[in-house]
Computed example of a mutant assay.
Amino acid sequence: MFSPRAQALHERWLSLRTEGGTMLPTWKTIRINNLANILSEIWVMDYVAPNAMIVRFVGSNAERICGNTTGEDFLNTYIAAENRAALLDIYKTVHEARCSAILTRMVSDPSEPYRAIISTVFPLAGDGPDSWSLIGISEITNAAQASDQTGYDFEHTALAPPVYKDIGFGLPDQAHQCENTNAYVKKREGY
Rank of each mutant, 00 (worst) to 15 (best):
M53Q: 12
G59Q: 06
E82V: 14
E63F: 04
A86I: 04
N83R: 13
A62N: 08
T69H: 13
V55T: 14
E63I: 12
A52C: 13
P113G: 01
W43V: 06
C66D: 06
C99W: 03
I54D: 09
V94D: 01
E72W: 12
C99Q: 01
V48D: 09
R56C: 13
D73L: 06
V55S: 03
V58Q: 01
A80W: 07
T70M: 04
V58L: 08
N51R: 12
S108G: 04
G59K: 02
A97N: 06
V58I: 15
G67D: 07
I90E: 03
N68C: 09
C66S: 14
P50R: 08
T93N: 09
R105A: 12
G67F: 10
R105S: 13
I54S: 09
T69S: 10
W43T: 00
I79R: 00
G59C: 00
I90L: 08
V107A: 09
V107I: 14
T93H: 07
P113F: 09
Y47M: 05
I79E: 01
M53F: 07
M106A: 11
S108D: 09
S111P: 11
T93Q: 10
V58F: 01
A101Q: 02
I102A: 10
S60A: 13
E112S: 11
N83E: 08
